[in-house]
Amino acid sequence: MLEIKNLHVAIEDGSKKILNGLTLTVHRGEVAAIMGPNGSGKSTLSYVIAGKPGYEILDGEILLEGENILEMEPDQRSAAGVFLAFQYPLEIPGVATMTFLKAAMNAHLRAAGSDEIKTPDFMKRVRKAADDLGISQDMLKRGLNVGFSGGEKKRMEILQMALLEPRICILDETDSGLDIDALKVVSEGVNKLRSADRSFLVITHYQRLLNYIVPDTVHVMSKGRVVKSGGKELALELEANGYADYVSDAA
């Protein structure tokens, strides 16, 4: 499914190397959690997979279903099935949420060589997905993420995930800024999307999120590489003992 091999990445101006030979495989249908202290390169990994500009790939490859995606534009990666749920979803004033959702869905359909979605079908799908996540019609009418609370923004990310039906979902600290109720709603939304064909990379600082989105595997990142992999019990161990052991191992 998703294979990351010996990935070395620096910030484009060459000032700082962030990923140092990261290797990671996420199998089809697997939910993999990535944990690690601040500055270990977790968010960079999510951006590099999604294709954010500003990073220089020094070595390595990222294969999605055997195809190297590093040469693709972000929109091509999205069409290929990569979805990044942002830690801080952006506000885009003047772009109505519905307009944006339709543009995104149609871009995916066009990339797949299909016809664009008919407006009544689109409305029906969005309403259903929005209801499941407790997103009001009023929110859909507003500018994208404009004036939304932290929890509303995260729910909007999951709504997009549900509509775009990706193969690999990357959740970048989706739990940050969420109270416990919002965390439950978002986690339920994610769990509904779990399937044998869809993989998840769940990036988080804390074990808490993993009580709701229970992972199959847990990987610890430190200094730009995976230093330890295990089952879900590894998350509990980290919660109890902290990252100190692994950080010093990597040094």
Binding site: A50, G51, K52, P53, G54, E73, P74, D75, R77, S78, A79, F83, L84, F86, P89, L90, I92, P93, G94, V95, T99, F100, A103, A104, A107, H108, A111, G143, Q160, L164
Partner: peptide, 26 residues
């Protein structure tokens, strides 16, 4: 805004379409 463009591209909008959406709003 490069970050906004990336956000829209990450949702599947090709760059020119993402720019057009932002310019239409602007």
């Amino acid at each position: 805004d490069e970050d906004l463009l990336f956000y829209l591209q990450a949702r599947g909008l090709p760059k020119t379409e993402a720019e057009a959406l932002m310019l239409q709003a602007f």
